[in-house]
């Protein structure tokens, strides 16, 4: 059978999600952000909730998330996305409200906002991209940077005496009564992508049940910041990041 015969509309099994816009993503080659954006777009499309979804983008590389997913967006100040989401959801309880935040945004400058949104049990979804580094500002140490990891502000490697220890946010918030579903996923393989998508779908479904905050951490790469090729960064993530940030569900109040 010719390739041309296979490429017929009736044989289509995968295409760019309809809710991903035609804007060229500004992310570096191989960046996990694009993959996660795609999964969120697919979930919104499949649940048929485009007209009731409000996204809140952070400060950091994904500040421009609003250019890529075709829904209504609010762009927050650094770390404040959960505060915006809190009011948005409380004032518009019939909407699906999610924040999309990196580790600099959520785990550093925005710790108060995320912890209190979790504690209050806001019925929102939080997508947390953890790549252990500040991407946009040029590869500085994040609270999630691993011990020994070199960044532009830890040029000799993160030293706990000087820089403290990595923060494991998902486990911290699991102790708060307001959280309903907490999971840690990745998007470096096709199987991982499928699991991450199920997790995101579950988080959006849980947010409809008014049982508290759903939190999907994606352990991700920043190949530019890590100074590796995209493929090497994925391998490094599996070997090092997964040890500190193991993949799997952390909390599910309905199980």
């Amino acid at each position: 059978m010719d390739i041309a015969d296979i490429k017929r509309p009736e044989n289509l099994v995968y295409r760019k999600p309809a809710l991903i816009t035609d804007n060229v993503m500004h992310y570096c080659p191989g960046c996990s952000h694009g993959t996660v954006h795609k999964l969120i777009a697919e979930v919104i499309e499949e649940m048929g909730i485009q007209d009731s979804t409000i996204g809140i983008s952070p400060v950091g590389c994904s500040v421009f998330a609003y250019n890529y997913i075709d829904i209504d967006w609010e762009e927050a100040a650094h770390g404040r996305a959960p505060a915006l989401a809190t009011a948005t959801k409380r004032l518009c309880p019939d909407k699906h409200v999610f924040t999309y935040q990196g580790d600099g945004d959520l785990a550093s400058i925005g710790t108060a906002e995320i912890i209190h949104a979790c504690s209050r049990g806001e019925n929102i979804v939080v997508i947390f991209i953890n790549n252990g580094i500040y991407g946009m500002t040029g590869g500085q140490m994040a609270p999630t940077t691993l011990i020994g990891m070199k960044t532009s502000t830890t040029p000799y490697g993160r030293d706990p005496k000087l820089n403290g220890f990595p923060m494991v946010i998902a486990d911290m918030i699991a102790h708060l009564d307001g959280t309903a579903y907490i999971t840690r996923q990745s998007v470096h393989t096709a199987a991982a992508v499928r699991k991450a998508k199920s997790a995101i779908r579950k988080a959006f479904e849980y947010s409809e049940k008014n049982i508290g905050l759903s939190f999907v951490e994606i352990v991700a790469t920043c190949n530019s910041g890590w100074k590796m090729s995209p493929v090497d960064a994925n391998a490094w993530m599996v070997e090092h990041m997964f040890r500190k940030y193991p993949i799997g569900d952390i909390k599910d109040v309905l199980k």
Binding site: I56, A83, L84, A87, L91, A112, H116
Partner: peptide, 10 residues
């Protein structure tokens, strides 16, 4: 800080 950002969201 949070209350003004809640206002931003609302």
């Amino acid at each position: 800080t949070s209350s003004i950002n809640m206002i931003y969201g609302g």
